[in-house]
């Protein structure tokens, strides 16, 4: 009798591979189409709309997009990176501290505070985004506002609006708390016998053990901020200087023809493709190198939670 490790379904290997290959190809098709289209011309795309195989592959679109003299792409990328760093460091610190408090300290009111924080996971972001927009617009003594927040535009179209909201991420506090739970108290006790204080324990004892979960935090915050569109659209659509990548690309994609000095007779889709490719490639490369952490980040919360 042979025992297979996994259940055998009535489906042959050949059929399994065929289904997988065909369905995966369907999933990959739009991205493949986009990459091929981005290294061709409008003519290539019109000639063979099934799959725009370029007659002469060209990196012209990429050269224009990445040329600082022609576009603001690098500035937008820099803005996005500044935001990403901020939204990794601050929520990271907050999550580690809170995770420690909720898992390793016991005091009255702790669970009430945790439940209070958990509320935000249940509501859609828009419930607090609209009033937060008003708060930013009516921020006292900012952007021409008086002390009552009247008269000016507050932080709208200014950096603080992109950096103030959303610094407490309950999702990561929850994840860190679960991780702290899984670390036995012995490590901290040993360090305390040697005279270490709480901060010392956090940095020297716990931090090395938190590396995997913090890697997950860094990756997912990065992906989230890299693609963030809704909030920057709400608060910065009037100031191209502080556009983030996703917002800037949306405006830039109509500019393909004029950047090439061509008349606007046909839509320059290859340019749109190249822009999209630029926004996706960094994340794809990241995914290929850090696949393990991506999987852990998606699944870890569900399994541990």
């Amino acid at each position: 009798m042979t025992l297979s490790r996994r259940p055998r379904f009535k489906i042959s290997r050949g059929l399994l591979y065929t289904l997988l290959i065909v369905s995966s190809a369907v999933m990959a098709f739009p991205l493949l189409f986009m990459f091929l289209g981005s290294i061709g011309t409008t003519a290539d795309y019109t000639r063979s709309p099934w799959l725009p195989i370029p007659s002469v592959p060209t990196l012209e679109n990429y050269a224009i997009i990445l040329n600082p003299g022609k576009t603001d792409v690098w500035k937008w990328v820099a803005n996005t990176l500044i935001r990403a760093a901020w939204y990794i460091v601050i929520p990271g610190i907050i999550s580690v501290l809170c995770g420690y408090v909720f898992a390793k300290l016991s005091f009255r009111g702790r669970d009430a505070a945790f439940t209070f924080l958990l509320m935000s996971l249940m509501l859609p972001g828009i419930v607090f985004q609209v009033p937060t927009f008003v708060m930013m617009a009516r921020f006292p003594l900012a952007g021409g506002n008086n002390i009552l927040g009247q008269g000016g535009t507050g932080f709208i179209n200014q950096w603080p609006a992109l950096l103030i909201p959303g610094l407490v991420s309950v999702y990561y506090i929850f994840m860190l708390r679960q991780t702290f739970y899984s670390i036995p108290a012995d490590f901290e006790e040993a360090a305390r016998v040697d005279g270490a204080g709480t901060l010392r324990c956090l940095f020297s004892v716990y931090l090395p053990m938190l590396k995997p979960v913090l890697t997950v935090l860094v990756i997912f915050q990065f992906v989230g901020i890299w693609n963030d569109y809704i909030w920057p659209l709400f608060v910065t659509s009037g100031n191209p200087q502080i556009y983030v990548m996703a917002l800037g690309f949306q405006y830039l994609q109509q500019a393909g023809n004029s950047l090439k000095g061509l008349p606007n007779t046909v839509t320059d889709y290859p340019f749109t493709f190249a822009l999209a490719a630029c926004s996706i490639l960094p994340l794809v490369i990241m995914f290929l190198f850090l696949q393990k952490y991506f999987v852990e980040g998606v699944a870890g919360f569900a399994i541990k939670g």
């Binding site: 995966s24 990959a28 991205l31 917002l247 749109t272 996706i280 794809v284």
Partner: peptide, 20 residues
């Protein structure tokens, strides 16, 4: 490889990719 084919689309920006 298969997992990548199914997972990579989730990494795309909803706004940028919708234009594609």
């Amino acid at each position: 490889l298969f997992r990548a084919a199914w997972y990579v689309p989730t990494l795309t920006s909803a706004a940028v990719m919708a234009q594609v």
